[in-house]
Amino acid sequence: MNLVRNLRMISLISFFGLMVTLLIWILIAEHSENFPVAAWLIIGVMPLLFPMRGILYGKTYTHAWASFLMLFYIAHGIGELYSRDAVIWYPLFEVIFSSSFFIAANLYIRAFAKLRKNAQT
Rank of each mutant, 00 (worst) to 15 (best):
T21R: 00
L22T: 00
L23G: 00
I24T: 03
W25H: 04
W25Q: 07
W25S: 13
L27Q: 03
L27C: 05
A29P: 00
P36G: 07
A38K: 09
A38D: 07
A38F: 12
W40M: 14
I42H: 03
I43R: 12
I43D: 10
G44K: 01
V45I: 11
V45P: 01
P47A: 06
L48Q: 04
L48S: 02
L49G: 02
F50I: 11
F50A: 09
F50Y: 06
P51Q: 06
P51V: 05
R53G: 08
R53Y: 07
R53S: 04
R53Q: 09
R53C: 02
G54C: 06
G54M: 03
I55S: 03
I55T: 04
Y57A: 04
Y57K: 04
G58Q: 02
T60Q: 13
Y61M: 08
Y61E: 10
T62L: 04
A64D: 09
W65L: 05
A66L: 03
A66C: 10
A66E: 03
A66V: 08
F68V: 12
L69D: 06
L69R: 07
Y73S: 13
Y73L: 12
A75Y: 14
A75E: 08
A75T: 15
H76E: 12
H76M: 14
G77N: 11
I78Q: 04
E80T: 12
Y82M: 15
S83Y: 08
R84W: 11
D85G: 09
D85N: 07
A86G: 09
A86W: 11
A86P: 01
V87R: 05
V87D: 14
V87E: 15
V87P: 02
I88G: 04
W89C: 01
W89F: 10
W89N: 02
W89I: 13
W89P: 01
Y90W: 10
P91W: 07
P91Y: 12
P91F: 09
P91C: 08
P91V: 05
E94L: 10
